[in-house]
Amino acid sequence: MAWDYSEKVKQHYLHPQNVGVVDNANAVGEIGSMVCGDALKLTLKIQEGTDVIEDAKFQTYGCGSAIASSSALTELIKGRTLDEALKITNQDLAVYLDGLPEEKMHCSVMGREALQAAAANYRGEAFVHEEESEYHTVCQCFSVNNLTIEHAIRENNLTSVEQVTHYTKAGGACRNCVPEIEAILQRLVPAAAVPSATDEAPPPMSMFRRIKIIEETLETDIRPALHTDSGGLELLDVSETEITVRFLGRCGSCAQSGSTLDFVQARLEKALGRPTIVREVK
């Protein structure tokens, strides 16, 4: 499909500024990979003492907007101090480019991340080390960590999983991490789609109603999500405390079926409004 790129974006991918590697760079930031479909290597020459970014160059593997975002980033940060540059948000980058299609906002996030990585490298720190205890990969498919997702949500006022995918790519492939993205959204944006649990004990529920809700949730919510991954799920048994299922198709043989099980459990608990145990039979 053709993207609705602004003239500014077009200018930056047709005539990118600051392509290459800075000689004697003292800050290098690398983000992404070829498998993911985009990657950015940022090299900076930072003046010792003043921390002014004297020179900035980039190399980018990716689509037109990835190249444009990288080019724009180098233009924006040159001549600024590192601390000033780090205050530039992905929104600032997008504004500088007269906007990016929402599906391409992850390109602007990548630019900001590369700068953070370069700053950490310059300061002799491990990238994101200050929050290391809370740092882990959420989306395995595109190697997106929780901090990236949290930053994107905060800076861009995101409220849905779909938006998080547009801005970070997380959740864009196997969707196993969708429940975790939902959890992050719920934590950061209390009013977001997912209603928060109450402390009150849930009202009693008949077995008939329990089965009916489970079947409806499987049909309208869970199976559609699994089928995007060529998988499926069979309901085997329902008791007062447990729900027994079997995964079919690709889900059955997937190494990540554990997290798929968590996903199913989270969805069913939400639908039933009470804790429940989902057990898998191979």
Partner: peptide, 21 residues
């Protein structure tokens, strides 16, 4: 490519042929 398709995953045809991403 993924970027030109509007999804985040590249061609299902080429992947089915075992082509690296």
């Amino acid at each position: 490519s993924a970027c030109s398709s509007g999804s985040l995953e590249p061609s299902h045809v080429l992947r089915a042929m075992g082509l690296p991403f």
